[in-house]
Design a protein around this nucleic acid. Structure first.
Lengths: 186, 186
DNA sequence: TCGTTGAGTCAACGCCTGTTGAGCGAAATG
DNA sequence: CATTTCGCTCAACAGGCGTTGACTCAACGA
């Protein structure tokens, strides 16, 4: 009639995953403070107490929900760095919920801010290593900030002018700007 | 001994201003949800009930705190638009608390998001009007997003690589990138 | 001088939050 | 079949929140 009665271990794994997925979505949509354990539990069709039992507390649940595998590939030339950043941006137009969740909360939740700073600094380091000339760290940081701004404007603030454009157009329009930052300035 | 006993009207005006200043600072530092009426009242050395009496509710207090006079000056040429944006960025390195408060909450507080969208769209419109060629709205939006990203990275996330650089270096490094966006692309 | 106004306080309300410990019942184990 | 394990729920707690209404008392106007 109902479920084919899965083994207990499997059932447990699936429930935990369901909670994690629900948490990710809600954190991504409303941020850390506006997302309640109760809402997560309801979305996962589970008792709030179970969420606590599996993840300990709200902060740990958030930390688990925003955990994401980082690429850690590095570029050899400035052109490669630019194309790599543009590539992640193309991907980011469908940013994974985990990253969205972190970005959404990074301005108001201290731990999300720390995670964001860490991830961005890593990117700055990688990009900076591929840039020539003086002031490479600053220019790498600015390139990262550019992508941050576009991502925030597009995915989080949902600015009309960015939403109306195709991903390809955005990438194409951004390329010269990033190239300009990749070269040592005047 | 104590105060020289100001007239009632003046005293009232000053108290209201003290509350508003405290609210701005706390909203800018912690965002909407993490800032409590009680904390604002304490910072203004006033009873929480007085905050409600003067501003009605927390949302209205926030709205008052983030209100800011917008410049509304428009550029005639692409170069002028670029310099104007860089100028506001130079200023933004010491961004007024009201703007900081709005930016801090724009990702998690719906009304702050609406205010931010409005302000950014206005800027996109102004910049776009000064740009030549096709796709001007998109390029204007990207220029705005670039400044947003740099501001967020510098003021809110406080990325080391941006904090370590001087304002002039940032403006100088950014200029070619914005110029590239100001011109019609390939 | 006396009644009125209004700036500011006090104590409390109802609500929602994260979090906890006891308990149930079905699956696992022997 | 008897027993243990454990996924999961239930009911409740303490604390903090925004918000309210009654009150106090000094400044004001006549």
């Amino acid at each position: 009639m109902t479920e084919p009665a899965l083994p207990r271990a499997e059932r447990r794994r699936r429930t935990e995953q369901r909670i994690l997925d629900a948490a990710r979505d809600l954190f991504a949509e409303h941020g850390f403070e506006r997302t309640t354990i109760r809402a997560v539990a309801a979305a996962a069709e589970v008792d709030p107490a179970l969420v606590m039992q599996y993840f300990g507390n709200k902060r740990r649940l958030f930390a688990e929900a925003v955990r994401v595998a980082d690429p850690a590939d590095s570029a050899a030339s400035p052109e490669e760095a630019v194309e790599q950043l543009l590539g992640t941006l193309g991907v980011k137009m469908r940013l994974p919920p985990a990253s969205l969740a972190m970005l959404r909360s990074m301005l108001t939740h201290p731990e999300a801010a720390a995670t964001a700073r860490e991830a961005l600094s890593r990117q700055v380091g990688q990009v900076g290593a591929a840039l020539p000339g003086e002031g490479a760290p600053l220019r790498a940081a600015l390139m990262t900030a550019v992508l941050l701004g576009v991502t925030v404007g597009h995915q989080l603030l949902e600015l009309d002018e960015l939403r109306e454009a195709s991903h390809d157009d955005i990438v194409a329009a951004l390329r010269p700007a990033l190239r300009a930052l990749a070269e040592p300035g005047a």
